[in-house]
């Protein structure tokens, strides 16, 4: 694909044709899924590719209610929102302290947090499993929240620290002269300035938490507490022959992420390249 360089410049229209081709490849499968979700199952089995006869939401209703995707969805929302909020809150405080204050062991503490970037947390799955068993956290949503929040700490601290270092300290110095204490400085002065970094971190924790499959696969037992990904494995087993409903279920599972993506493309690109600047 890097041939364009060899023959000099690719004419603009050829380059755009290539880009559009790849765009079709990237989006085509998703469009097939969306179209499939509006067709009846009999139609799909008769002719796998085709347009829906009418625009009905029967499949969505069946997936949402009969297949209890609504339950999985509510669980995923609860777990994801709580985990991301907890993670961002504790990381913002620690990152602020680590980048603004000098104290003994500061560098060591920062290194301790950041070392988590390099080690796959999933390696500790079995110990987590037995720890949860002794703490009564198996098959509970709070258990998942704690795991996800903890797993997000290294990346969040990494991004927020990098950002806080670049912020000017004058405003805080001024507030300090006015007699504000450290807690007040953080909440009223620093936090508002840190918003862009907090946004990047929030968006970046949201997707992996929403998508995670491994932890709930191992730690959750009851159907009523499943998050969307584990719920889907059950759903695919039960509705294996009902493709129309499967397509609708997949669209529901993807929708929240597409929404986040649409609202936060800028933060996503900033986060993806966070380690790359300089």
């Amino acid at each position: 694909m890097s041939r364009p360089e060899s023959g000099g410049r690719v004419p603009g229209f050829a380059a755009h044709a290539l880009l559009w081709c790849y765009a079709a490849l990237a989006v085509g499968p998703l469009i097939l899924v969306v179209i499939g979700s509006f067709r009846s199952n009999a139609d799909i089995l008769r002719q796998p590719v085709g347009l829906p006869d009418s625009l009905g939401f029967d499949n969505y209703l069946r997936a949402w209610q009969t297949a209890s995707i609504s339950t999985y969805f509510a669980n995923s929302i609860m777990v994801t929102v709580a985990a991301v909020a907890l993670c961002v809150a504790v990381s913002a405080m620690a990152a602020y302290a680590l980048s603004r204050w000098r104290f003994r062991g500061r560098a060591l503490l920062a290194a301790f947090f950041l070392s988590g970037l390099m080690i796959p947390a999933k390696l500790g799955l079995l110990p987590v499993f037995y720890m949860f068993q002794s703490m009564g956290l198996i098959d509970t949503r709070p258990g998942l929240v704690l795991l996800y929040a903890a797993g997000g700490v290294p990346f969040s601290i990494f991004v927020i620290m990098g950002f806080v270092r670049g912020l000017p300290t004058e405003l805080e110095e001024a507030a300090r002269l006015d007699g504000a204490n450290e807690g007040r400085l953080f909440v009223s002065v620093a936090l508002p300035l840190m918003r862009p970094a907090l946004a990047v971190v929030t968006v970046f924790q949201f997707a992996p938490t929403w998508n995670d499959f491994f932890y709930p696969l191992v730690l959750m037992r009851s159907d009523s507490k499943y998050t969307v990904p584990v719920g889907l494995t059950r759903f695919f087993g039960e509705f294996a022959t009902d493709r129309a409903t499967l397509f609708a279920g997949l669209v529901i599972a993807i929708a929240p992420l597409v929404l986040v993506f649409a609202l936060a493309t800028k933060q996503i690109i900033a986060g993806l390249t966070a380690g790359m600047s300089r």
Binding site: M93, A97, A121, G124, L125, P127, A150, G151, E182, G183
Partner: peptide, 27 residues
């Protein structure tokens, strides 16, 4: 203040990421 700001993250990360990782080696 240092403890107030750093401990929540430290406890969370230490308990649910670091301790299980270290334990995994002994298992």
């Amino acid at each position: 203040w240092i403890a107030t700001f750093c401990l929540p993250a430290l406890v969370l990360y230490g308990m649910f990421v670091v301790v299980p990782l270290v334990t995994a080696f002994s298992y």
